[in-house]
Amino acid sequence: MPLRRRELLLSPAALPLAAHAAPRSLRIPHVSPKAELDRSYAAVLLEQALAAAGMPVVLEPTPELIPQNRALQELGRHRRVDVVWTMTSVEREQQALPVRVPIFKGLFGWRLLLATPEVAERLRGVQTLNELRPFSMVSGHEWPDTSILQANGLNVIVSPSYDAMFKQLRLGRADAFPRSVEEIWWELERYGQGLVVVPNLCLHYPAPVYYFVAPDDTVLARAIELGLQRLRASGAMEKLFLQHLGDDLARARLGTRKVIELRNPLLSPQTPLDQPELWFRPQG
């Protein structure tokens, strides 16, 4: 059952937390090959939010990589993980309990394109969605982005393997790989041999990343929500966002790019699209 707003904004005293309890161990899934998972932006924000809500925690990443969909299933069934952060969809919000604060301010919906230099040159002249449709996009199996791209009439080549997607570009089996501003520079350095970031183009769709917990773990959900609201009010969340992601944003120069807007049909009616302060918008 979704949490009501008045429940989520409870004072710390209303949460059944011991004032001097030992830190709670929270298991988080290793869903990305990026290093230093426990020091990532989302992990540090989670720690700080729960500390602000009076629930100190110690994060314990799983030793093995766990795909996002499987990690969400682990929340409700086997309890191998306690918190997952991932892009939302109606289906995912039915599987697990979302805390509806977009922790990346929608940054995962700002997509730059990886391509070979030859394809990047052809993409330079693209100005509209119709002009983009002849190009094929590679995307992951069961990723929400795949359904979003397909819903906008784009030609999507679905791949079950993350590593294989970069190879498909180099082999000419797909034209471009849309990646978020937060991901693309790290991936270009590690997997992007022979590839470039298309310099003048950007895709955008509303794509909140939420923290998800098990459907019955309302205490943890309330604490995360309360802590996030307190960090936002103090400015600490924005400071952390810029500390971790500011360099990626500066490098992307989103305000100078042609932005092609896409619709996201996967969002639930509860998505806080009417709260502009929760979302990133580039300066022109």
Score class of each variant (00 low, 15 high):
Val156Asn: 01
Glu142His: 08
Ala115Asp: 11
Gln150Thr: 03
Met165Gln: 14
Ser161Ile: 04
Trp110Pro: 00
Arg122Phe: 07
Val181Ala: 08
Tyr162Pro: 07
Phe135Cys: 00
Asn200Thr: 14
Leu112Cys: 03
Arg170Leu: 14
Thr116Lys: 10
Pro178Gly: 04
Glu183Arg: 03
Glu189Ser: 05
Glu118Lys: 10
Ser139Leu: 06
Val198Ile: 11
Leu149Met: 02
Phe135Thr: 00
Gly172Asp: 14
Arg173Trp: 13
Glu131Thr: 01
Arg190Asn: 14
Asp175Leu: 02
Ala151Ile: 02
Tyr191Gln: 06
Trp110His: 13
Val138Cys: 05
Val119Trp: 11
Val181Asp: 08
Gly106Pro: 12
Asn200Phe: 04
Gly194Leu: 11
Gln150Ser: 01
Val119Met: 14
Leu149Phe: 15
Leu154Arg: 01
Leu107Ser: 02
Gly194Glu: 13
Asn130Cys: 02
Leu123Tyr: 09
Lys167Asp: 14
Ala115Ser: 15
Arg111Pro: 12
Gln127Tyr: 07
Arg124Asn: 14
Pro160Cys: 06
Val197Met: 10
Val156Gly: 04
Ser161His: 13
Thr116Ser: 15
Leu169Gln: 12
Gly172Cys: 08
Asn200Leu: 02
Val126His: 14
Leu113Cys: 07
Asn152Ser: 00
Leu169Glu: 14
Phe166Tyr: 15
Ile184Leu: 14
Glu118Asp: 15
Ser161Leu: 05
Leu107Glu: 13
Val181Arg: 03
His141Val: 00
Gln193Thr: 13
Pro178Gln: 00
Ala115Trp: 12
Gln150Ala: 07
Arg111Phe: 08
Asn200Gly: 09
Tyr191Glu: 08
Val138Ser: 09
Met165Cys: 03
Leu171Ser: 06
Lys167Phe: 10
Gln168Tyr: 14
Gln150Met: 04
Leu114Val: 04
Val138Thr: 11
Glu183Pro: 09
Asn152Asp: 07
Phe166His: 08
Pro117Thr: 11
Val126Asp: 13
Arg133Asp: 03
Asn152Phe: 09
Leu107Trp: 11
Ser159His: 06
Ser136Ile: 06
Arg173Thr: 02
Trp110Gln: 00
Arg133Tyr: 00
Val196Ile: 11
Asp175Pro: 07
Ala176Asn: 01
Met137Lys: 05
Leu201Met: 09
Arg122Trp: 09
Thr128Met: 09
Ser180Pro: 06
Thr128Asp: 10
Glu189Met: 00
Gln127Val: 07
Phe135Trp: 10
Met165Asp: 00
Glu183Lys: 03
Pro134His: 06
Leu195Asn: 05
Val138Asp: 14
Val158Arg: 01
Thr146Lys: 03
Val138Glu: 09
Pro134Cys: 07
Asp175Asn: 12
Ala164His: 11
Ile148Tyr: 13
Leu132Asp: 11
Gly109Leu: 06
Asn152Met: 07
Asn200Asp: 15
Ala164Asn: 12
Arg124Phe: 10
Gln168Trp: 15
Leu132Thr: 02
Val198Glu: 11
Val196Pro: 08
Pro117Trp: 12
Glu121Gly: 05
Leu188Ala: 07
Gly106Thr: 07
Leu114Thr: 00
Gly172Thr: 08
Ala115Gln: 12
Ala115Ile: 10
Arg133Gly: 05
